[in-house]
Design a protein around this nucleic acid. Structure first.
Length: 262
DNA sequence: ATGACTTTCACGGAAAGA
């Protein structure tokens, strides 16, 4: 099966590019972040016409996450929100089972700066995510688990175009990387891209400003974390940079993971 | 260069992203 995670930076603004992604790759399951929809404005009928059932946790003007499941796969046991999240209205987490695998679409808070209250909120969200990952594993030991999304953390220095100008900023701090490692350990998860590409440097996000994309100034902050038992079935994991180009691109590129299951 | 771009809400420009 093909699984995609993509921070679309507004699902309504990006609907033509999302349709292009679905047509080009025919993914079975898609995790979206920064949908920026209200419940009422989520384009469920448009996605249904494209062959996808959707589960969405919509928070309005900011953030919002969704999971799309391609027929004939069915959405089972949807859960909106993350236990222990101190700001659930921000709508940064949703879960659903499809094809025998539990999928999570997650949008970790940005953090803004190491001194900001948003930074503590980011670490608290990741702590809650680690606990939820362990709980899912305990409750559904018979099914696989994939937690994917925009983690707003570059796991290692090699995931940043140049770590030097980022010293003292968010996305690269020791506490953020430790929190990410705790999610991986708590859920017995592996970073699919890094597992298949131990030495490659590729990015999933580039700032819209200053021609960053064309200068190669980016970071790998969008991740697909898969249950350790699924690692042997990983066929490929790649970033489609074409969706960072062309007409009205998101500032993130989609990450595609081919899993040898189902 | 204290910027640079893009989105939302709303109708000018602030807030947020990372």
């Amino acid at each position: 099966m093909l699984f995609v995670t993509w921070n679309v930076n507004s699902l309504r603004a990006r609907l033509p590019r999302v349709a292009e992604l679905l047509a080009r790759h025919c993914p079975d399951v898609v995790a979206l972040q920064e949908t920026k929809c209200t419940d009422a404005s989520f384009p469920a009928s448009e996605l249904a016409e494209l062959g996808y059932e959707s589960v969405h946790n919509s928070g309005g003007q900011w953030s919002g996450v969704a999971l799309l499941v391609r027929r004939p796969l069915l959405v089972k046991r949807p859960v909106l929100g993350l236990d222990g999240d101190t700001a659930p209205a921000e709508a940064r987490w949703c879960e659903a089972t499809a094809g025998g695998i539990r999928f999570v679409s997650a949008y970790v808070p940005n953090g803004r700066s190491l001194e900001s209250p948003e930074y503590d909120r980011k670490l608290a969200f990741m702590d809650a995510a680690a606990k939820r990952a362990a709980a899912i594993r305990g409750a559904h030991a018979d099914q696989g688990l994939v937690i994917a999304g925009d983690f707003n953390v570059a796991p290692a220095d090699c995931d940043v175009y140049d770590p030097r100008p980022h010293v003292g900023l968010t996305h690269v701090s020791g506490a953020e990387r430790d929190a990410l490692a705790t999610i991986l350990a708590s859920g017995s998860l592996i970073d699919a891209y890094r597992h298949l590409h131990p030495d490659q440097q590729q990015f999933t996000w580039w700032d819209y400003r200053a021609g960053s994309f064309h200068k190669g100034i980016g970071m790998r902050i969008d991740l697909t974390l898969v249950a350790r038992e699924l690692a042997g079935g990983l066929i490929a994991c790649d970033i489609d940079r074409d969706f960072r180009k062309g007409f009205k691109p998101s500032d993130h590129a989609p990450l595609l993971t081919w899993l040898g299951v189902g």
